[in-house]
Design a protein around this nucleic acid. Sequence first.
DNA 1: TGAAATGTTGGGGCG
DNA 2: ACGCCCCAACATTTC
Length: 474
Amino acid sequence: MTAAIWWIRRDLRLADNPVLAAALARADQILPLFVLDPFFETSTYVGVARRAFLWGGLNELARELRQMGGRLMVRRGQPLEQLRKLMQETGANAIFAAADYTAYARRRDAAVAAFLPLRLIESHTVHPPGAVLKPTGEPYTVFTPFSRAWKNLPRPTPLPAPERLLTPKDIASEDIPLPVASSLPAGFPSGEKEAARRLRAFTEGSGTSDGAPVFSYGATRDRVDVDGTSQLSPYLRFGMLSARQAAAAAFDAIDRAATAIEHKGAETWLNELIWREFYYSILHYYPHVLGQPFRPSFAGIRWSGDLDAYGAWCAGATGYPLVDAAMRQLVQTGWMPNRARMVTASFLVKDLLVDWRWGERFFMQHLLDGDPASNNGGWQWTAGTGTDAAPYFRVFNPVVQSAKFDPDGAYIRRWLPELAAVPDQHIHAPWQMPPSTQQAVNCIIGRHYPPPIVDHAWARERALAAYQSDSGRP
DNA sequence: TGAAATGTTGGGGCG
DNA sequence: ACGCCCCAACATTTC
């Protein structure tokens, strides 16, 4: 009998799992192992919600493994030490894990590989960093040519889940951490089954006469008052859904599209998946983006360092309803639609002139899908410091964005109940309500809801001036 | 995957 | 009838 360790980090699924498949091809028995790494228990970049989501996923995975005859092991401590011990206890002679790209992950895996037979398998992307390169062998730094090259590669075909998986008996394991009920994200039940159900509902429809949401994605994805996005990112983050499964479903939807609009919707969603792969590639080839601007010319911007402004942004108390609604949604649910991320990020960086890295960290703490590559890519895009980023002079107007993407204010009223009775005409800029109206709807600006923390027109000019003078621009 | 400022055009009111 | 102005609507440029 041979045994191999399946070292699980963020690949919490049985279907389409090339790491597990590689381990099964090599060994008769599999030791699925999760190591409670003290690094993550103390990291300021991991908040309680994402940790609870992970614990929930581990419990789900353990349940599924039991049904197949297997068992999830949990050990606490340094990965190298715990892996070495488990190999000694069990006679396992190989370790399989998914390749990962953050600085910490690479350091950790290199340290293990130096002493133990660790095999890293590509699993987090459809086409791993290095598979999509310019003809010269250089990485792409612009999205559109990257996506063109990506689409020229073979279409993915996900693997089925294995039918049986045997784990050696009588191996000690710690208890799987139970998520604290109060920190469990209510809108996002954890686990592979839930992920598959949501993917099906999004790309194939929920069985009603309505078309699949992916077909209207082009029109609705930016509407914050409508659930127009897939909301699959938390599942992709922990591999409860694989990028290949998602991309395969996107290609299927493109094939099934009956109209130009449907085709465009599915194609746009596929592009979002490719953005994710683009940023994985960027992080792999340009690891300095974690901490430094991709473009060094932006390293000299003098940020305001305004802790009060940052605190108001975090608390959803800037006085701009769309920004505040989105920040409250983030803190309460661990998730925000992409449009809201762009608006809140632009507001922090451009209107408040707060260092984008502060926002990046806050998002990492609160987002269930907090992924270093995508999150960093998004923030650098907004700050104008990244690859293929928004030009520095593009400044979102939080009132205009609100009117466009939450036209009736339904999203605002949902997350800011204090504004529930504000008339439509003032919902995007409530400080313009006449005092009599404020009285009438019981929303006094300055008492029930704050006045705007900055004047947007003024803030825009300040941002343009700061970017211009500090980034060596003419 | 902006917004604001500036420029152009053309219809209509009016002397 | 004609020129002038106003200004919406749209286009282009600039940040």
